[in-house]
Design a protein around this nucleic acid. Structure first.
Lengths: 151, 151
DNA sequence: TATTGTTATACTCTATAACTATA
DNA sequence: TATAGTTATAGAGTATAACAATA
């Protein structure tokens, strides 16, 4: 008789009592679903966030994106390059301060972010389907309190 | 980590309505505090989790750690090597199944994880000090519901 | 001098294929 | 054949230093 591979019961109680452990595990499982859903439009989480931010804040600068999304300046460069090469964003040098470059969505970018935000919202609904809408609101409220207090 | 200042008023409302965005931001800010506090005992989050897991589950195998903490088998190797080189864990080949290696804490490991768990709990208390104890319980309960439903 | 954007680069984290030894 | 652990390696993510153009 072949022994069945039953997963051994492990004591995870201490780790599960820590906020950091639970927040990270939840974030990873949510982002995993997000990534699966975004395969069809080829957007990574950070690319999605950047596009969505530009969409709602036209003529935003790279520095402002970095501050808002906690991206280091050297790391935004390849992200913007990639989005520009896909004709999703365009850059226009600020004539008043030629150091700054105003970013905006192209027609393609506007079309894609519209679809992407729908997919993201679907993913969000799916990953939170086991809690009630009011629990979901409460959860987001408390998460914000944690990271906004740290800022 | 990036400096935290958002000088200009940017519209982040859409991203802040997504669970994934908020969970990730909260996890990152909590882990940032954890890392600062753990500098003195030189433990990364994953090393801490592994030590704590071995502490509460003596003779656990590498495979079991990987399953519990979502670490891929090739990536646990260097973690265990490092912990062993610091004389924090010891390995003993299972005589019944020589493929398996039972892991346990050394005297040093037991001493260190005791201190580490105190520091981790302090960090957890600090990062959740702006919410009430019952809100904290509710938050952990809801986060668990999200990632355990996905598993 | 200070700031925005950039290059180069390094270090960490995560992922895949394939090997070994044991069963 | 299957499993536990390992090696090698590649890709992604994140970090610092230093530079050019502009203010």
């Amino acid at each position: 008789m072949v022994k069945k591979n039953v997963p051994k019961k492990l004591d995870l109680s201490y780790l599960e009592s820590l906020m950091g452990y639970n927040a990270r595990r939840a974030a990873l499982s949510i982002i995993e679903d997000f990534n699966i859903r975004m395969v069809e439009i080829q957007l990574k989480p950070v690319e999605f966030s950047v596009l969505s931010l530009i969409s709602r804040n036209p003529n935003i600068s790279a520095k402002e994106i970095c501050s808002a999304l906690f991206i280091l300046p050297p790391n935004i460069v390849s992200i913007l390059k990639s989005l520009e090469s896909r004709d999703l964003i365009s850059r226009q040098v600020d004539e008043k301060d030629k150091r700054q470059i105003a970013l905006s969505l192209t027609k393609n970018g506007k079309s894609l972010i519209k679809k992407a935000e729908k997919l993201a919202m679907q993913s969000d609904q799916l990953t939170t389907q086991h809690i009630t809408p009011s629990e979901r609101e409460q959860l987001i409220f408390l998460l914000k309190k944690i990271y906004q207090a740290a800022a």
